[in-house]
């Protein structure tokens, strides 16, 4: 075990329940490195929902709440309001965040509350065995779309940008360096930081979504189907759909606005204005 793992992993909790080649391990490592880069381990707690991706923080030597399917954000908002000076990271999946937790996502983004959200997008419900998710590409045959998916995949980055999230980025597991930097940046950012990571689920999304079972090959496809953008260059706000397979998908930091008013700051300002605090 290297030093990072020594410091961050709860050895008693191993092995992880991730399948071999799953993207979750790459993201877990990026998160550990980002916390280490920021030197903020003592001030960081994690909250996650339910799904394979939501197990990412459960192996970390941090305070962790592993919550309910779709509800990581409201738990995190309560924790943040009780501990305004601390850094709260949220790990969630495409189903967890955009389907069952969609309403919470809208409102957390609109509040621009200071959380760092890592949404692991494997375009599938991994944990329950390969059913269609809100980000499953059109025509993909999954366990619950046996004739091909007819629902337009949703662009979570576009959605939260429309609502006012002030830090928004999309990366893939084939871009671990940029991903790590983004998570670190997001944690230092005051406001709702939303980082989507395209992540391979070779077991449940491999064949049906990517036509590939080999994790390395899926990661190659991530590189092939995405293009790098500079901040502000493209604005997915309002984008209806996002699917790497259906056309080139932008990756990068889409928005980084440190001046957007953050929820807790707005609360404090209002209370000061009214002479309450």
């Amino acid at each position: 075990m290297n030093k990072l793992y020594e410091k961050y992993i709860k050895k008693e909790s191993l092995p992880t329940l991730f399948c071999p080649g799953c993207g979750n391990g790459i993201i877990q490592r990026a998160a550990m490195e980002a916390i280490e880069m920021n030197g903020c381990k003592e001030e960081t707690a994690c909250v996650s929902g339910i799904g394979c991706s939501s197990w990412i923080p459960c192996y970390l030597q941090l305070d962790v709440i592993h919550t309910m399917h779709g509800r990581a954000l409201p738990f995190a908002e309560g924790l943040k309001l009780a501990q305004p000076d601390k850094k709260i990271m949220v790990f969630t999946g495409d189903g967890d965040c955009v389907a069952i937790g969609g309403n919470h996502l809208l409102h957390a983004a609109a509040r621009n509350i200071d959380l760092t959200v890592v949404m692991v997008n494997n375009n599938i419900y991994g944990m329950t065995g390969g059913q269609k998710s809100p980000t499953t590409p059109l025509e993909a045959k999954t366990k619950t779309s046996p004739y091909g998916c007819i629902d337009m995949p949703m662009d979570a980055c576009g959605l939260v940008m429309t609502l006012g999230a002030s830090y928004v980025a999309r990366w893939t597991t084939a871009h671990p360096v940029q991903l790590t930097r983004s998570i670190a940046e997001g944690m230092n950012h005051k406001g709702f930081a939303f980082i989507e990571v395209l992540s391979q689920c070779p077991v449940q999304a491999g064949k049906n979504v990517w036509g590939e079972k080999d994790p390395a090959k899926i990661m190659d496809l991530y590189k092939k189907y995405t293009y790098m953008t500079k901040t502000g260059e493209v604005d997915p706000a309002g984008a209806r759909s996002a699917s790497a397979i259906e056309g080139k998908l932008p990756i990068g930091v889409f928005r980084n606005d440190p001046d957007a008013p953050e929820y807790l700051e707005k609360v404090e300002a209002k209370l000061a204005e009214c002479g309450i605090r």
């Binding site: 709440i65 409201p74 738990f75 995190a76 309560g78 924790l79 943040k80 309001l81």
Partner: peptide, 12 residues
């Protein structure tokens, strides 16, 4: 969401 938020706050 309210019930979840109060649980989060209690751990805080």
């Amino acid at each position: 969401g309210s019930a979840c938020a109060i649980i989060g706050a209690r751990w805080g």
